[in-house]
């Protein structure tokens, strides 16, 4: 397949993942599009259940489609449609093309296999190298992810390592075959705060060293803030806001992004400050609201919001900013495309 070398590595276009459950259809991913270029990091943020992880797995093609699950839309990796490939061909992508880091390092390593086996098996399968070469490369990989005494670690079992070390091993296995795209699905959620920072820094440095593309999925805005180039905020399976990380977090356009940022507790807060939360719960995905998915929890919602699903449109609030809202929080109010804010819907 021919692709321009400077084009984006991954193009996701109008992706839908629908689970057909006995209670009805669940549109876990509902029309999401984005692009990631080599050397770039995209952050996917949202609450639990917003469809981030399903999106990550759908992009990889890991979701088994069948009568209970349908996927539509396109995922183009280097111009190849991942979902159009035969299962066998798709398996060839996993490892050398796309790597994935999972949430919990306690469960994403097989307890009965040695650390070294995890690495060498993948290497030998994809790169067809000898046992000796594979071992050498495994030591090299463990060095790269900052594991001390790599030779000794090879013969250890996962339970002999700490959580942070295990996550490093998971990252090393995901990187074993030099993937061009790394999908990190909440890689730090199960770790201590101090270890979280180390792992995120490690991922960031690996991305720049290898000019890899990375998708960092997280519910932790802090994790995403400093280490991604662009960010995409998800709510109930849809993208509500997208743009360069810095400007999105500095001046959020969508009320949901604003509310998420406001609900991060600050250490500088007075003791006994009531934590700010977003009232209500994410919608029941078998019966999502007709209009804006966030409408029922939004302070700015009006009749338009309950009736009409807002489209993701470019807003002039900065370069490459997009938002799906009838009443975005634009910093330049005069440029707002819709009618001025109705004060009726403001403040609960």
């Amino acid at each position: 397949m021919m692709t321009p070398s400077d084009g984006p590595l991954l193009v996701v276009d109008d992706l839908h993942t629908v689970f057909h459950t006995p209670r009805g259809e669940v549109r876990a991913v509902d029309g999401v599009s984005f692009q990631v270029a080599a050397g770039e990091t995209l952050g996917l943020v949202g609450e639990s259940g917003s469809g981030k992880s399903v999106l990550g797995r759908t992009v990889m093609g890991l979701i088994a489609t069948g009568p209970a699950t349908t996927v539509s839309g396109q995922v183009l990796l280097d111009g190849r449609d991942v979902h159009a490939l035969k299962p066998g061909q798709r398996r060839q992508l996993w490892g050398p093309e796309i790597g994935m880091v999972f949430q919990d390092p306690m469960t994403s390593l097989n307890p009965v296999k040695r650390v070294g086996t995890h690495l060498t098996e993948t290497l030998r399968r994809h790169l067809h190298c000898s046992r000796k070469e594979a071992t050498e490369r495994a030591v090299d990989l463990l060095n790269q992810v900052g594991i001390p005494e790599p030779v000794r670690r090879l013969t250890q079992y996962p339970h002999e390592l700490s959580g942070g070390m295990r996550q490093r091993v998971v990252i090393a296995t995901a990187l074993a075959c030099d993937p061009r795209l790394l999908i990190a699905d909440e890689p730090t959620t199960a770790l201590d705060v101090t270890v979280q920072k180390q792992i995120l820094d490690l991922l960031a440095s690996l991305v720049s060293e290898r000019t890899m593309a990375m998708i960092l999925i997280s519910h932790d805005l802090g994790a995403v803030a400093g280490r991604t180039d662009r960010v995409q905020v998800m709510y109930a399976g849809r993208t509500v806001e997208a743009g360069p990380t810095r400007t999105v977090f500095d001046s959020p356009d969508h009320p949901y992004t604003d509310a998420l940022l406001a609900s991060i507790p600050q250490l500088s807060d007075q003791p006994h400050t009531v934590l700010r939360t977003i009232e209500g719960n994410p919608p029941d995905m078998t019966r999502p609201p007709r209009g804006c998915r966030f409408g029922p929890r939004c302070g700015r919602a009006d009749d338009t919001c309950t009736d009409l699903m807002p489209a993701l449109v470019a807003v002039p609030d900065g370069p490459a900013r997009q938002v799906a809202c009838h009443h975005p929080l634009l910093s330049i109010e005069s440029l707002e495309p819709n009618a001025p804010l109705t004060e009726a819907g403001h403040g609960r």
Partner: peptide
């Protein structure tokens, strides 16, 4: 259902390999 099986799948392991190397020893 454990994540390491999914992780092995994400590294390109096929069904037979998953059964033999991930499930069987456990």
């Amino acid at each position: 259902e454990r994540e390491f099986v999914l992780a092995a799948r994400a590294l390109g392991a096929g069904r037979v390999r998953l059964l033999r190397r991930e499930v069987l020893p456990n």
